[in-house]
Amino acid sequence: MAKAMTKSQLVAALADEMGSDKKTAGGALDAVCALITREVAAGGSVTLPGVGKIYCRERPERTVRNPATGESFTKEADKVVKMTIAKALKDSVNG
């Protein structure tokens, strides 16, 4: 399995793809991340063409079990961020 790409490696690759410097690419990456965070936190979703859809889903209150002690307790309702991967990305990885 390949190592995960770090932010600095991603910025360098993005700068190369854009044909610009790392500072501009880093600013663009930060702006996109901030925009996605703001939209998903507000309850919306963001679709990245060819990559997938990022959205927030609400989970209802539920009973869970502590695996260490076996004790059951009720966990409050919460929200979780999900991502659905685009078919194009799945196909490029598998084929």
Rank of each mutant, 00 (worst) to 15 (best):
M1R: 03
M1N: 03
M1D: 02
M1C: 06
A2W: 04
K3H: 09
A4C: 04
M5I: 08
M5S: 10
M5Q: 09
T6F: 08
T6S: 10
K7M: 04
K7F: 05
S8G: 03
S8F: 01
Q9G: 07
L10Q: 03
V11K: 00
V11M: 05
V11G: 01
A12K: 05
A13K: 14
L14H: 02
D16W: 05
M18V: 06
G19H: 07
G19V: 15
D21E: 06
D21K: 08
D21A: 15
K22C: 04
K23A: 14
A25F: 00
G27D: 08
G27F: 02
A28D: 13
V32W: 09
L35A: 11
I36R: 02
A41E: 11
G44W: 12
G44Q: 06
S45F: 08
T47D: 10
T47C: 04
T47H: 14
P49F: 03
V51L: 14
K53R: 15
K53Y: 05
I54P: 00
I54Y: 05
C56G: 03
R57C: 01
E58S: 01
E58D: 01
P60C: 08
E61T: 13
E61P: 03
R62P: 12
R62N: 11
R62T: 14
R62Q: 14
T63K: 10
V64G: 13
R65S: 15
N66Y: 13
T69P: 02
T69A: 03
E71P: 01
S72R: 06
T74E: 15
E76K: 04
K82S: 00
I85V: 14
A86R: 05
L89M: 04
L89Y: 02
K90D: 05
S92H: 06
V93F: 02
V93Q: 01
N94D: 08
N94P: 02
G95Y: 05
